[in-house]
Amino acid sequence: MIGETVLEINLKSLAHNFEYLKSKIKSSTKVMGVVKAFAYGSEAGEVALKLQELGIDFFAVAYTNEGVKLREVGVTQPILVLHPQSMHFETLIQNCLTPSIYSKFVLDHFIASAEAHKQKNYPIHLKLNTGFNRLGFANQELDGVIEKLRTTKAVQVEGVYSHLAASEDLKEKEFSLSQIKNYEAMSSQLIHQLGYKPLKHLCNTSGILNYPEAHHDMVRTGIGLHGYSNDFAVDAALKPIATLKTIISQIHEVQPGESVGYNRKFIAEKFTKTATLPLGHADGINRIYGKGKNYVSIKGEKAPIIGNVCMDMIMVDVTHINCKEGDEVIVFGPELSAEVFANLAGSISYELITSVSQRIKRKIIN
């Protein structure tokens, strides 16, 4: 009996996924592991250290403080900060983190910070906007970028990259191919003007699988390391690393006409046995998963979530299940995919797994 709600992180499954994804690229192609957002809701330090042990080349995080925490636990590989803010540049430099430079504002301020700290050839990665329209330099800005870089020796371009908007959706293949074409043209222009060749990287997990011609010098993977690929056929070859488990706190016998939970969103039409579980929307099991849309697994059987999800509790229908208080419950994991769980409510695995609250205990299985 686990006795409490826990998120188990299986590092052997992580290693399996890493090796599977490496099998899809050339041996010379580097791999960047994306471990932002607590490594997609799991445990960033343990995940990063395991990947470092496995020989990964780079890491990526969203924000500077995430990179600092990785340094504090012993991560020594290069760490790209995908969305740095200028107020954190001093901390970024002190921790040998690599900034993604995505606008003139960021470029100007980072060069000023690097010069103030007497840096020479500090590595940066330039982010190109090839159609996502989220972050990145537009094509018409590139001449200005090169002109600015020629005024300083404080920084050096280590990487040039972009991001595919719909690499998992083959109905958008034409758009993805247009992004690849734009990236080729923009990166070639930059490299020609720089006079040296930085690392080129474009593909995310779905890009690795669907666009091998665009692997370049390095690929990035986040969700794939965690056992999901946006393709159920590929998911069968991967292993979800996280299993969210909880227990039955109490069992109720609900008579016909009685209600369960806030706003009486479940009214029993017949005798119903319910189980109350100690996790709710404060733990990442949001209200969208209630009212019969989703289910958990108890003794290998489906137990639908009934009524509204509470902040700290959910109630499930166990009328048909021979269970008792204290029994283990699987919310998602290898037996009940987070992708399936999320899809039932119109969400995606990314949103579900990254929402798992930090108040839930993490248990590392190596």
Rank of each mutant, 00 (worst) to 15 (best):
H252L: 15
F332Y: 04
C323D: 09
I348W: 09
S100V: 07
A233T: 15
R359L: 09
M315K: 09
N343T: 15
A44D: 12
E66D: 01
T91E: 13
P278G: 13
M1N: 07
Q179E: 09
L92G: 05
P240F: 12
L277G: 02
N133S: 14
A114V: 02
Y262D: 12
A39F: 15
T76E: 08
Q52Y: 12
T354E: 13
L344R: 07
E115F: 11
L238F: 13
D235P: 00
I348F: 12
S167G: 12
V340R: 00
A116M: 01
I191W: 11
I2L: 15
V47S: 12
Q179S: 02
L244K: 00
G222D: 11
E184N: 11
D317C: 08
L190M: 08
H88V: 03
N182A: 11
I305W: 12
S349V: 01
T76M: 03
E213W: 11
Y102Q: 10
G257Q: 03
S176F: 06
L82W: 03
G136T: 04
V329K: 04
P304R: 06
N95E: 05
I247M: 05
Q255G: 06
K265G: 07
Y20C: 04
S259A: 06
M186P: 00
I364K: 00
V81M: 00
A282I: 10
S13L: 01
N366K: 12
V356H: 06
L238E: 12
N129A: 14
E184T: 14
G300I: 09
T246W: 08
K173W: 06
S355I: 03
R264A: 14
F89S: 04
T5C: 07
L7E: 12
L92E: 01
L352M: 01
G55H: 01
L177E: 01
